[in-house]
Amino acid sequence: MSAPDDERPPSPYDRRTTVILRTVTRLVVPVTLMTAVALLLQGHNLPGGGFIGGVLTVTALVLVYVVFGGSYLGETLGASGGLVAGYRALFAAGLGVALVSGLVPLVLGGRFLTQAVFFVEHLPLYGELEVATALAFDLGVYFTVVGALLVVVAEVGAE
């Protein structure tokens, strides 16, 4: 596996992927992302959770990286060049969300990271909806994992 001749390719793989791989990726990535979000949201009652959802999201995006090259994602999202800064902000925000979700109970007189479950009754269609504050914490976990892993992938991939 030798590097292409030009000076510094965005990724050594982008020009060597096949039509099949690219087409499959286009189909698979949205499904994977949906699955990841589903895993995140259902985590409280079924297998899943913030960490698994986060890693799966990263896997889907890494697939985009490998198949379409490092700059594709940035160009598509309109954040060319500053993507790593965005990832950094993402994991910082994730940590912040997790921390704040732990601090809120302190203000309300509970202990750090106490989680509660609220039941919203008499909703149209749903009837009763169960809302766990743990979801906020899980969202923090999700964003931290996604942001941190993408930083690693983007930085290592750019090497």
Binding site: G43, H44, N45, L46, P47, G48, G49, G50, F51, G102, G110, F112, L113, T114, Q115, A116, V117, F118, F119, E121, E130, A132, A134, F137, D138, V141
Partner: peptide, 23 residues
């Protein structure tokens, strides 16, 4: 309408992760 002492989730592993051992 509000539960604090209970995890309120069917997935014990996740409840442990985010609630009981959240720290």
């Amino acid at each position: 309408p509000v539960l604090v002492d209970w995890g309120g989730g069917g997935n014990v592993v996740n409840v442990v992760l985010v609630d009981f051992r959240g720290i």
